[in-house]
């Protein structure tokens, strides 16, 4: 679609400008969000089946004072077998969190296809900063205990 589009046609009014990246970002966000909400809903249905309706009335009350111990991808995946309702929900939340980050990474590739090197550089830089942020968080949380 946007393949082979000449860079530099950024004048206002050009209907085809950034078609490739736009379609990609829009659909990645849409399907990422859709997938995450389906997983979260599945977790809630699972909870309803396992605990019954009272889970929804007392739900946040029961765990109001406790934070979750599902704090890493490994912990969440570990709890998925055999499945726990809470782990299914947390997996959906994880999907939600990684969606925008992966979208930025994919956008860099979309700009490569458009041969828009300035924006390849800009988007790659943003993606790198996001990853650096994750690395700093991991480093400091390990050091901080």
């Amino acid at each position: 679609m946007g393949l082979g589009q000449v860079a530099g046609t950024g004048a206002a009014g050009d209907a085809a400008v950034d078609m490739g990246p736009r379609v990609l970002v829009s659909s990645m966000l849409r399907y990422g969000v859709l997938l995450a909400s389906v997983v979260i809903l599945a977790g809630l249905v699972f909870l309803l089946v396992q605990v019954g309706p009272r889970a929804f009335i007392s739900m946040p009350r029961t765990s109001i004072s406790e934070s979750t111990d599902l704090t890493s991808i490994r912990a969440v995946v570990g709890e998925l077998l055999p499945p726990e309702p809470e782990a299914v929900i947390e997996a959906g939340i994880l999907l939600l969190i990684v969606t925008p980050v992966l979208t930025v990474g994919a956008t860099a590739i979309a700009f490569v296809l458009e041969r828009d090197w300035l924006y390849v550089a800009i988007t790659t830089f943003v993606f790198a900063m996001l990853l650096l942020g994750f690395a700093i968080v991991r480093g400091s949380s390990l050091a901080g205990g």
Partner: peptide
Amino acid sequence: VTAAASASVYFTRGDIPAPIAAPVAL
């Protein structure tokens, strides 16, 4: 995008418990 970058901090601390996060997200 910005929030996703800082989400890992809160997730790692266990500040995103499922019973609250599920209704919020949906």
